[in-house]
C-alpha cells in the first residue's frame, strides 16, 4: 500500500511541474511584471508617484467610476436577457442546435462584429432606414451610451447564457415537480426553487461578463466614439501613445485588484453551500 502511494506521487510530479511552469510563465510572471513596472516613472526611476497620481487625480477616479458603472450596466442588461433565454433553452427540443447558434457569433472576430454594428447603427444604416420608414425619422444612434451598452451586451451574451444554461440543465426535474405538487405556482417555483439552484451559473456568468467589461477599449472608440472613456482606453493610451508604461501598469494593477474583489464578492456564496 505504501509503495503504491509513493509511486503515484513520483508519477504525478512531472505532470505537476509542467502545470506549474505554465502558470508561472503565463500567469504569475506577467502579473509580477505589471506590478514591477507600475513602480517606475517616465524617467525610469523607482517611484510611488504613479499610484499617487492615480489616487489624487479626479480624472482617473472618475474614469474608474465610469468603467464600473458601464460594466455594471452591461452586466445587468446581459443578465436580464440571458437568464430567460437560458431558461427557455432548457425547455426546447434540439437544444444542442440552439446552443451552437448561440456560440456561433463568438467565432467571429470582435472587430468584424463592431464594424457590422457601425453599418447597422449609422445614419444610412438599417435601423435608421426602418425608423424613417415608420415615420420616426433618422436618429443619432452611433456614439451614444445606449448603443455602446447594447453592442457590449451583445458581445458578452454567450458568456452569460452558457454557465446559466449549464446550471439550469443540471437541476433534477423531480425537484420542480415536487415544488408544483407541494402547491407552489410557476412564479414561486422559479423564484424559490429554480433561481437559487442556478445561482452558481449566474455567479460565473457575472464574473465572465463584468470583469472583461471593466476594461473594454476598442468598442468604446468604434461604437462609443470615445465619448465613453474606460480604464482600458487609458491603458491603451499609456502603452501606445505616451509610452508611459509605468502609469499604464498602475492602472492595470488597479484593474487586477478590482478583479480579485469582484471574484471574492461573487464567489462568497459557494463556501456557504459547501458547508450545508
Amino acid at each position: 500500500m505504501k509503495k503504491v502511494t509513493t509511486l503515484t506521487k513520483t508519477n504525478r510530479l512531472p505532470y505537476f511541474s509542467l502545470y506549474f511552469l505554465w502558470i508561472g510563465l503565463f500567469v504569475i510572471a506577467p502579473v509580477a511584471l505589471i506590478v514591477y513596472q507600475s513602480f517606475f516613472g517616465i524617467d525610469h526611476s523607482l517611484t510611488l508617484n504613479n499610484y499617487r497620481t492615480y489616487l489624487s487625480s479626479s480624472v482617473y477616479l472618475r474614469m474608474t467610476f465610469n468603467s464600473f458603472w458601464f460594466a455594471f450596466l452591461i452586466t445587468a442588461l446581459t443578465l436580464a436577457i440571458s437568464y430567460p433565454t437560458a431558461y427557455f433553452l432548457t425547455k426546447l427540443e434540439h437544444r444542442q442546435l440552439w446552443i451552437l447558434l448561440i456560440i456561433l457569433p463568438t467565432w467571429i472576430n470582435l472587430l468584424l462584429k463592431a464594424y457590422a454594428f457601425i453599418g447597422i447603427f449609422s445614419q444610412s444604416g438599417s435601423v435608421n432606414n426602418f425608423l424613417t420608414f415608420i415615420g420616426v425619422g433618422p436618429q443619432q444612434l452611433l456614439f451614444t451610451n445606449t448603443s455602446f451598452i447594447l453592442v457590449a451586451a451583445y458581445i458578452q451574451i454567450p458568456f452569460m447564457i452558457l454557465p446559466i444554461y449549464n446550471s439550469l440543465v443540471d437541476i433534477d426535474p423531480a425537484i420542480i415537480n415536487a415544488s408544483h405538487d407541494l402547491g407552489a405556482n410557476n412564479f414561486q417555483t422559479l423564484w424559490r426553487v429554480i433561481f437559487p439552484m442556478s445561482i452558481n451559473g449566474v455567479r460565473s456568468g457575472v464574473q465572465a461578463v463584468f470583469i472583461p467589461s471593466l476594461s473594454l477599449f476598442m468598442i468604446t472608440r468604434l461604437i462609443g466614439g470615445n465619448k465613453v472613456i474606460t480604464l482600458g482606453t487609458a491603458i491603451e493610451e499609456h502603452f501606445m501613445t505616451t509610452m508611459n508604461w509605468g502609469m499604464g501598469s498602475t492602472i492595470g494593477v488597479v484593474l487586477i485588484i478590482i478583479m480579485f474583489i469582484t471574484m471574492a464578492l461573487t464567489a462568497g456564496g459557494r463556501k456557504g453551500k459547501a458547508k450545508s
Binding site: 445614419q123 443619432q140 470615445n226 465619448k227
Partner: peptide, 14 residues
C-alpha cells in the same frame, strides 16, 4: 460627435 481614428474616412464618405 466622436473622437475616432481611421473610421473617419468611412463615416465622412457615408
Amino acid at each position: 460627435k466622436a473622437v475616432v481614428a481611421d473610421e473617419i474616412k468611412m463615416y465622412m464618405i457615408a
